[in-house]
Simulated assay, not measured.
Amino acid sequence: MSATGEVKRPVPPDIRARKGGTPLVVLTAYTTPVARLVDPHCDIVLVGDSLGMVVHGLPSTLGVTMEMMILHGQAVARGTAKSMLVIDMPFGSYEEGPEQAFRNAARLMVETGAAAVKLEGGVHMEETIAFLTARGIPVMAHIGLTPQAVNTLGGYRVQGRGEDAARIRRDAEAVARAGAFSVVLEKVPDALAREITNAIDIPTIGIGASVDCDGQVLVVDDMLGLFTSFRPKFVKRYAELGEEADRAIAAYAAEVRARTFPAPEHVFGEKVPGK
């Protein structure tokens, strides 16, 4: 706590220092109300480009824009006070080169108040990550299954099986060498994720990886049972809020049609209360 009583949010060096310690808790958020729910429990709140599918109904993350990430990033920033805010760089905002990546990453941080950005890619993003970190842009890397490359990868398949493991190892080494403060490992075999976690000096954050990673991340709508279009194997449902919401909405509709809602206690009379 500071002298003013404000909670000190973690910053990227704090996250990096958690390597090998108590696992990091990471969840996504896209709105202020959900940010307020996850903030007390998380080390990092991620405004993921998964919002394209979860919130906007897009078929993939490829249609997400900078404007969408900024709008949702601003909403989440208003709902967080304890956790560190990280925001995804959307497809097409950084792949062209380090200069493009810097312009867009700086814009995201300035307009949302995020402490860091996340971008996908390993060896081919090493130069860009190094360029950003040398200029004050902390980077969370993302390797393994990288959803923005779903068309190149041929779908949402497990990455790093068999001989392909060497590619994922090289990616992990590259992003660590470039200065990323952490790296998301998505949908890679358990043993490979464990090996990478032991081999690199930055925290690994697993999603469909290994319990031995330095932290875990899930899409909040997945773990709460709000997003039900599909359910990846790596998702554990901690609640079924989608089913609860369906029951509640059905009950409301039935009462409206039966004219049992609104009831007398929900309407207003002519008499002023207390007079």
Score class of each variant (00 low, 15 high):
A239Q: 12
A254I: 00
A245R: 03
V256S: 01
L226G: 05
E244T: 04
E243T: 07
V256K: 01
V256Q: 01
A254L: 05
L226W: 06
T228L: 13
D246F: 04
E240F: 15
A239V: 08
E240W: 09
A248T: 01
P232D: 13
L241V: 01
K233R: 15
A248P: 02
E244M: 12
A254Y: 06
A250L: 12
R247L: 14
E243I: 09
F234S: 11
K233V: 12
G242R: 05
L241P: 03
V256D: 00
F227E: 04
D246N: 04
I249F: 10
A251R: 08
I249V: 11
F227S: 06
I249Y: 04
F234T: 10
Y238C: 14
R231W: 06
Y252T: 00
D246I: 05
A251I: 00
E255H: 03
K236Y: 09
G242V: 08
A253F: 04
R247H: 11
I249A: 09
G225R: 02
F234V: 12
P232A: 14
S229W: 06
A248N: 03
R231H: 14
T228Q: 13
K233T: 11
V256F: 09
K233N: 14
L241G: 08
A239K: 07
L226M: 15
E244K: 12
S229F: 07
V235A: 14
A254H: 08
Y252S: 05
M223R: 00
L224Y: 00
L224E: 03
A254W: 05
R247N: 06
R237F: 06
E240A: 13
M223V: 03
A248V: 00
G242C: 08
A250V: 09
E244L: 14
E244W: 11
A254E: 13
K233P: 08
F230L: 06
R237L: 13
P232H: 10
A254S: 09
E255M: 03
L224W: 01
E244R: 07
